[in-house]
């Protein structure tokens, strides 16, 4: 699904992680851990194709759906309108199943600005189910979710994996997945790693 070889990722032109080599097969999840600022978001943004890697290769056989810190939910629209928009973008349909899976059925007609932070997050995560894409790239998906919602979400990830999907998840809490783990502290770029400004030094 995803194969990464000798990858160096940069933030603001400076290498933050280097020498990353890993692979995620269908049905597998990879949990990225490490302290704040280690480069989890940078790595996920690079994998999502939002920024180019400084070095190395990313080989993805499946298209990726990216979920950032921000949910991309519009306050003026209802939950269902928000999700129908994403379904339209990805060429899928919003079904009651998806709403039920993320416990949003009762909230479907509420304007999103009246939702709590956890409800907003669930709306944001429900988007993943609408993408129909096999590889999920999740940046701290459980932020502001209560224990019940975390379990609900973990169930959805498991269902995704069981249907041949894969996930790369940056998280510092254990969401109870049977997953591969990658501690990014082992890959922090050293002093000599080349940055974008190398030519000036």
């Amino acid at each position: 699904m995803l194969r990464v070889r000798d990858l160096t990722v940069a933030r603001g032109g400076l290498a933050v992680l280097e020498g990353l080599t890993f692979a995620v097969a269908p049905g597998e999840a990879l949990v990225l851990s490490g302290p704040n600022g280690v480069g989890k978001t940078t790595l996920l943004r690079t994998l999502a194709g939002l920024q180019p890697p400084l070095a190395g290769e990313i080989e993805a056989t499946g298209q990726a759906a990216y979920a950032s810190h921000a949910d991309g939910v519009k306050g003026q629209l209802t939950v269902a309108e928000n999700l129908r928009f994403w379904a339209g973008i990805y060429g899928t349909r919003l079904t009651d199943d998806v709403l039920a899976a993320f416990a949003l059925a009762d909230l479907a007609d509420r304007p999103a600005r009246t939702l709590s932070a956890g409800q907003l997050r669930r709306t944001g995560l429900a988007r993943l189910a609408l993408t129909g894409r096999p590889l999920w790239l999740l940046d701290e998906p459980t932020v502001s979710l209560d224990a019940e919602s975390v379990a609900l979400f973990a169930g959805q990830v498991r269902r995704h994996l069981a249907t041949g999907g894969a996930a790369v998840i940056a998280s510092h809490i254990d969401i109870g997945l049977d997953a591969l783990r990658l501690d990014l502290r082992a890959y922090v770029a050293t002093e000599t790693a080349t940055g974008r400004d190398e030519a000036f030094l």
């Binding site: 600022g37 082992a186 922090v188 050293t190 002093e191 940055g195």
Partner: peptide, 14 residues
Amino acid sequence: ARARRMPPVPLATE
């Protein structure tokens, strides 16, 4: 930028 960067985080695992 190079001088200011964080000191390397100690390795927790191999």
